[in-house]
Design a protein around this nucleic acid. Structure first.
Length: 463
RNA sequence: GGCGCGGUACCCAAGCGGCUUAAGGGAGGGGUUUGCAAAACCUCGAUUCGUCGGUUCGAAUCCGACCCGCGCCUCCA
């Protein structure tokens, strides 16, 4: 049984897809006004784990992620840089895709853009007005939250006790109730706008998700994800719109991941700790180490990104990689050890059971480390055989379909000059000329090649 | 003020009533192996789970109070 913590009910619930073995997944995507930062990627990696696990369990997953390419921030940025909105958004859309590839995040099936769904949004707004849940004021349209009696069910907010924030006081938008939210914003000088059946203007933020999730996935969908900060108001408002529009539930499951903090404190531009993937790549950090760090903390817990936690992740990942490297580079006698099959089965059970329990990644990883130790023991005792090695390797490949933390098998080739050096060193070692041998080893280390001597001969890896 | 999250070894972190007199990873000490390294293996490491009470045959796990850190409460994943 798979269970997930559903924000809607505030507890873990058994997961059943609406259609057998098919999951319709909608995840809130980026607003493309800047490079995404690691906090954003924390959410995308959590969603990636969720999706990969569902795939692993044999579900077909249809995954839609929206791209917000028109809103206050994108407009402001374009204005600031004196370029068109599209120039800005195209640039950051490209960067976004490059980044998720770098982090080994599986692509969604569809990435609908807000600007390509303007007529549908206008249509939904119109329908909401006709149903009596929305009103027009000074060219803009607002959702009347007093009409939607379930308002607040996701965020557990009492509609009548919503505090009026200072920011709402401005008369920029003229609403009946301070907490009514904009469905459609009237055309303003200097801002992009679209001519639609409800008049000229541009969409509010929440409406795009309602429109695009329903258009591509139908209603209700199985799972809707995002960061905790999206619970209110974004997801709450999506529910209000969609459930009013279709008289159906929007999503059965709402999963939200917690925030990422940096060196123990919140990310913010002023602190300069809002790292992008590019910043980190410039520091020479392996993206898969970042993936491991973001992945290895349970999604509903805060994760702390720091030099220290990064190093720890690096070392942990290194343990897995070294293990596989041992298997790959040593030679083993023919045959098999019956113990190994049992260990693998136990590991797989623990691995999937753990992830089935609201994506308990810590326990899932533990199961892998336990297997590593057992196999290492057998290896040290010469009790591991060729077939065992093959079985372990293919199991890790399988489990990595869920984790995505192992480097792709690109058969690294050594340059001829380096090969020569290695041969030279082997010769020196045979002659017990260790000074020369060490000298060559240091020399290669500087070039990023690590040499290790084993019973089976020298092996090398890149730093 | 409202809603919510968290406090477990030096660090990260699982466990959420007896299977655990607390997993796993990192860092560290000692040992084996090695020409030396690296990797690996063995071993050491919380009588204790923020504090104080309570419930129970039994609590890190349930209840109460308190202390500390954090998030959200109109556009931030």
């Amino acid at each position: 049984m798979i269970q997930f913590f559903n924000t809607l009910s505030g507890k873990k619930e058994p997961f059943h897809s609406i259609q057998a073995k098919k999951v319709r997944l909608y995840t809130c995507g980026p607003t493309v006004y800047d490079y995404a930062h690691i906090g954003n990627f924390r959410a995308y990696i959590f969603e990636d784990l969720l999706k990969r696990f569902l795939l692993f369990k044999g579900y077909k997953v249809k995954h839609v992620m929206n791209i917000t390419d028109v809103d206050d921030k994108t407009i402001k940025k374009a204005d600031h840089e004196g370029v068109s909105l599209k120039q800005v958004t195209d640039k950051y859309i490209r960067a976004f895709f490059a980044d998720i590839d770098t982090l080994n995040i599986l692509r969604a099936d569809l990435y609908p853009k807000a600007t390509e769904h303007i007529p549908e949004m206008a249509h939904m707004v119109k329908a909401l007005v006709e149903k009596g849940y929305a009103y027009k004021k000074n060219g803009s349209y607002y959702f009347d939250i007093s009409k939607f009696k379930d308002y607040g069910k996701l965020a557990k907010i009492d509609r009548d006790e919503l505090k009026t924030g200072e920011r709402v006081e401005s008369d920029e938008y003229d609403k009946k109730n301070a907490h009514d939210f904009a469905l459609w914003k009237d055309k303003k000088p200097g801002e992009p706008f679209w001519e639609t059946e409800i008049g000229p203007g541009r969409p509010g933020w929440h409406i795009e998700c309602s429109v695009m999730s329903t258009k591509y996935l139908g209603q209700p969908i199985d799972i809707h994800c995002g960061g905790v900060d999206n619970i209110f108001p974004h997801h709450e408002n999506e529910i209000a719109q969609s459930e009013t529009y279709a008289d159906k539930k929007l999503a059965h499951f709402w999963l939200h991941c917690h925030h990422l903090i940096v060196e123990g404190s919140k990310m913010s531009k002023s602190k300069g700790n809002q790292y992008t993937l590019r910043d980190l790549a410039d520091q020479g950090i392996d993206p898969l180490v970042i993936r491991y760090l973001l992945l290895s903390t349970h999604y509903r817990k805060m994760v702390n990104y720091s030099d220290k936690t990064l190093k720890q992740s690096q070392s942990s990942l290194e343990r897995i990689r070294s293990f596989l490297y041992e298997l790959k580079t040593r030679s083993f006698a023919e045959g098999e050890n019956p113990e190994v099959k049992k260990w693998i089965q136990d590991t797989e059970k623990k691995f999937t059971d753990s992830l089935s329990d609201d994506l308990n990644i810590s326990l899932a990883l533990t199961s892998l480390f336990e297997l590593i130790r057992e196999i290492n023991k057998l290896m040290a005792n010469q009790e591991l055989y060729h077939n065992d090695v093959r079985a372990v390797q293919s199991s890790f490949e399988k489990w990595d379909q869920v984790l995505g933390i192992l480097p792709k098998e690109d058969e690294d080739q050594l340059e001829a000059s380096i090969k020569e050096k290695i041969d030279q060193r082997n010769k020196a070692r045979k002659e017990k000329n260790y000074d020369l041998a060490d000298q060559i080893r240091d020399e290669l280390l500087e070039k990023g090649i690590i040499l290790e001597d084993t019973k089976d001969g020298v092996r090398w890896k890149k730093k």
